[in-house]
Design a protein around this nucleic acid. Structure first.
Ligand SMILES: NC(=O)c1ccc[n+]([C@@H]2O[C@H](COP(=O)([O-])OP(=O)(O)OC[C@H]3O[C@@H](n4cnc5c(N)ncnc54)[C@H](O)[C@@H]3O)[C@@H](O)[C@H]2O)c1
Ligand SMILES: NC(=O)c1ccc[n+]([C@@H]2O[C@H](COP(=O)([O-])OP(=O)(O)OC[C@H]3O[C@@H](n4cnc5c(N)ncnc54)[C@H](O)[C@@H]3O)[C@@H](O)[C@H]2O)c1
Lengths: 217, 217
DNA sequence: TCGAAATTGTGAAATAATGCACATGATTTG
DNA sequence: CAAATCATGTGCATTATTTCACAATTTCGA
């Protein structure tokens, strides 16, 4: 039990997924939820829900279900989202701005504490949230000084690796990269690459296959 | 050997991934690429690259490698991205605007042909790209009339299902949903849910686990 | 109080995905 | 032209993940 070393990584993604409907249950004063209900809302198998949770302990009551509030608390603890995480963001174009403005991150306990851009016309500008955009060359000093937890890269693809290098220099431990190039990182930094158009292409493939009358995966 | 019916879905995601460096090779006049090089750039195992491709045919030359241009063309054909796909987008807030403005989608052969919002102050406004935002109630008629291929949902979470229903009514076949609720769809429509904060929570979990016990600095 | 219904937790089977290792064919070099 | 080198394609072992199926536990109603 609780040997984190061999927990399937799909399990982790699903735990985050489960927390969304759980939050709703808590907000709507629905105290008890079953693996079947949760599974349905998240589009997975009920046994999967139970097994995912079982990696970390016994949170339910047989014949009854799970206490929504308690389960949500446990999942947050497991994921590490029961505390605030600070974020800096590099590349204040359309997507970067959109992310900083987005309220959901704040609600989930993330806080943007620094924003950077290479463009000298942008550097100095103050964002609605109160942050001032700083020149990218400040990254190592600023990010290290503030002890920022996470970095988000929203620069053009060709600049992504360079942006990442500055973050490594600042000793950052985790990066979410939205550009279309896979950023390469040293051992000590975890990268999550999120290429949005890969998602679109997935969709396109499935449609294409479907239209051709072939059975779908 | 082209039996599409049992192709692993991770394979499809990786094919899209491979196309990024391949594009660069083509643009920089590098004619030949090996599975090893491609694998390195995409952060996967070389045998994986070869196996992924082998599901669809023999595209390489033993002892030599793959012709970058030809391989790129084949991958596009396999994915279905060798033709234009039209997109409509529902919810023209920060993220929606950002997606419509993004040039990469156009470069990859996607074309936004309609944009919708519920907000009556937004409806009617013209976007830089030339599209005019329409009221959401126009979706069924407009989307069906234009024969739009794909839908993107960027409304607040609580509105996502409603937005989706309008798209179903318009007989749309695939939807990319950026809101934090999993949209439920009829058989005839494929949904890809992309919850960005799930990605962040993944990162947080791994950091938390990695540095459990050790002082984070 | 008892039996039926509900629902969890879990071992074991089934299914899916990955990666090794080598036969195969191309190319280069001496 | 033979040998060395390179890199693909693939059968198979390995590893990872999902799902089944059922014992265990709780609740409820007669
Ligand atoms: N906008 C979207 O909806 C969207 C969707 C999918 C992927 N993406 C990807 O996200 C990234 C950003 O997209 P965008 O639309 O915001 O682009 P954008 O061009 O609007 O913004 C990029 C910003 O990065 C800044 N920049 C460039 N080099 C930099 C550097 N070295 N350090 C710091 N800042 C730097 C630029 O000055 C600019 O402000 C791109 O890689 C894009 O492919 C965006
Ligand atoms: N902005 C981001 O960076 C970001 C990041 C992650 C996830 N998301 C998700 O993407 C979605 C959009 O985010 P956003 O920041 O653009 O929000 P936003 O509030 O800026 O925009 C939402 C837009 O949707 C419109 N809308 C509401 N109901 C509608 C309906 N039924 N039909 C059509 N339009 C409707 C609103 O008028 C508004 O213009 C949200 O679900 C958010 O959680 C956004």
């Amino acid at each position: 039990m609780t040997k984190r070393s061999k927990i399937p990584s799909p399990t982790i993604e699903r735990l985050a997924l489960y927390s969304r409907p759980l939050q709703s249950f808590v907000e709507s004063d629905t105290p008890i939820v079953s693996s079947e209900k949760l599974a349905e809302l998240c589009g997975v198998n009920p046994a999967q829900v139970r097994k995912d949770l079982a990696y970390f302990g016994e949170f339910g009551v047989r014949g009854v279900g799970y206490d929504a509030q308690e389960l949500l608390r446990e999942i947050k603890r497991i994921l590490g989202t029961d505390r605030e995480w600070t974020i800096c963001i590099v590349g204040m174009g359309n997507l970067g701005m959109s992310l900083v403005e987005n309220d959901n991150f704040r609600k989930r306990g993330y806080r943007f504490v620094a924003a950077f851009d290479l463009d000298s016309r942008k550097a100095g500008r103050r964002l609605p949230c109160g942050l001032a955009i700083q020149p990218a060359c400040n990254i190592p000093e600023q990010v290290r000084g503030l002890g920022v937890d996470l970095g988000i890269i929203t620069t053009p693809s060709r600049e992504a690796q360079r942006a990442a290098e500055l973050l490594f220099k600042a000793n950052i431990k985790g990066i979410l990269n939205f550009s279309a190039t896979q950023v390469r990182a040293p051992e000590c930094c975890i990268i999550e690459n999120v290429d949005l158009s890969v998602k679109l292409e997935n969709l396109v493939y499935h449609l294409e296959t479907l239209y051709k009358g072939m059975p779908m995966k």
